[in-house]
């Protein structure tokens, strides 16, 4: 070990900024270099996504346990979901992930018009997703399939009373005991998709802000971190849906 100094002393030369070169305006002053800032913020975003993984992890655990326990109820419950809307929503969300990725690319290559367009498309697709989700939710509300609020077992104990679904799947009536557990399915359905939708709503709100700032040209001068990190968030929400879709909609679609 060499014996050179640790260059710290009781000197009071505060603010003696060791400015070895000009900093871009968006560099926070406690970082030494802009690379350090970008590295740090992107790493922080990844760590935040880890917490999100674990947050949804609790829901997935609950889902897996009850799906194993009450498989017939989960099948009957999933038949109540509209596969057309579900698939459409998956496609919408994947496309929005694509436009978001394009937005990041536009920011990186400093294409302001492209960035604003991509972000607007992403926001639009996000809103379409939420719109479709609300159509699906209202179907459940009409059929009294919201747990805890006058939950109705009729579609499960007497499937023929629900011709729309019955014509497709010809479900056998469930015993009352098992039919009651469809409430658990819908409880998890609403908890999981609701939590996902909440993330979408937050994402859309941030997107609005991003569009506003992008319009002002804030992200096309080299400061891409915020757009990139939001992109990570948006793709993460997409991934959650990629798992929710088969788990909730596609349990067993064959007759």
């Amino acid at each position: 070990m060499s014996d050179s100094t640790v260059a710290v002393s009781g000197a009071q030369a505060e603010g003696a900024h060791s400015g070895h070169h000009e900093h871009p305006p968006y560099q926070r002053h406690h970082f030494e270099t802009i690379e350090q800032q970008m590295d740090a913020t992107s790493f922080a975003m990844w760590l935040f996504l880890l917490t999100e993984i674990m947050f949804f992890g609790g829901l997935f655990t609950a889902y897996l346990i009850y799906r194993n326990w009450y498989y017939p109820a989960f099948v009957a419950g999933s038949h109540q979901l509209n596969i057309f809307w579900g698939t459409a929503n998956t496609a919408v969300l994947i496309t929005s992930s694509f436009t978001m990725a394009m937005g990041v690319w536009c920011a990186q290559t400093r294409r302001k018009g492209g960035l604003v367009l991509s972000l607007c498309l992403t926001l639009l697709l996000g809103l379409v997703f939420l719109g479709i989700k609300s159509i699906e939710y209202s179907e459940k509300i009409e059929k009294h399939h919201v747990p805890g609020f006058h939950y109705s077992l009729r579609s499960f104990t007497d499937p023929a009373s629900d011709p729309e679904i019955y014509d497709q799947y010809h479900d056998k009536p469930l015993a009352l005991d098992m039919a009651r557990h469809t409430e658990m399915y819908f409880g998890l359905y609403f908890a999981m998709t609701g939590m996902h939708a909440l993330h979408m709503i937050i994402g859309c709100a941030i997107l609005g802000y991003l569009i506003f700032r992008a319009q002002a040209g804030d992200y096309t001068t080299g400061h891409v971190t915020f757009v990139e990190n939001f992109g990570l968030y948006w793709h993460f929400v997409d991934i959650i849906w990629i798992f929710l879709f088969p788990l909730l909609y596609l349990i067993s679609r064959h007759g």
């Binding site: 609950a62 409880g187 609403f190």
Partner: peptide, 9 residues
């Protein structure tokens, strides 16, 4: 929602 409710399974 029933996840912790033994009465609902």
């Amino acid at each position: 929602i029933g996840v912790f409710d033994a009465a609902k399974g």
